[in-house]
Simulated assay, not measured.
Amino acid sequence: MDYAAEIERIAVEARRRSANVAEEIDEIHRQTALRAERFAAETTERLQELADQDQVVQDPPEVPAESSAPPPSRTPEPVRPSAPRPPEAFEPDPNWTPEQLRQAEIRAAVARARAARQARSTVAPSDGDYDPESEYYRRSTWLD
């Protein structure tokens, strides 16, 4: 048995397979680059469409020059603290799948629980006098 010839044959086969793998990798890189270019072009076009739509929505309609009425003055109304709004009633859509219905019920339950916690977070003393002990229990944070 000629070991040198066998080693040479194995080396030639390894170089051939290595060249095939390198060619496949080059082809994959080329295909990936083409896909990336296509994706970038499509994304740019889509972003431009969305920007155009936003521009149309943000542009106020032109007022005809014939109207001589002064524009209404906008004075910002002061922000008044208000009680938290109760969560909206849960209304299932008849087209929902059972899984979507279950998820919607869970979201509604979480919203109800959150509203209940917020409603209980504001505590007012029942009597008008100052009580240091009640102040301790009415503090805003328990991390002190």
Score class of each variant (00 low, 15 high):
D2V: 01
A4K: 03
A14C: 04
R15S: 04
R16A: 09
R17Y: 04
S18F: 06
N20I: 06
N20F: 09
V21M: 12
V21C: 13
A22E: 07
E23L: 13
I25T: 13
H29M: 14
Q31K: 12
Q31Y: 09
Q31N: 13
R35C: 03
R35Q: 09
A40M: 03
A41N: 11
A41K: 15
T44S: 14
E49R: 15
E49S: 11
D52W: 05
D52R: 05
V57Q: 02
P61K: 02
P64I: 05
E66I: 06
P70D: 05
V79F: 10
S82L: 08
A83T: 03
P84F: 01
P86Y: 04
P86V: 03
P86E: 02
F90Y: 04
P94I: 00
P94F: 04
N95R: 12
W96F: 05
W96S: 11
T97Y: 01
L101E: 15
R102F: 09
R102L: 11
A104C: 00
A104P: 02
I106P: 04
A109Y: 05
A111V: 01
A111D: 05
A113G: 10
S121R: 03
P125I: 06
S126C: 00
G128Y: 09
G128V: 01
G128K: 10
Y130A: 09
D131T: 01
E133C: 09
R138H: 05
R138Y: 08
R139P: 02
W142T: 10
W142M: 14
L143E: 15
D144Q: 09
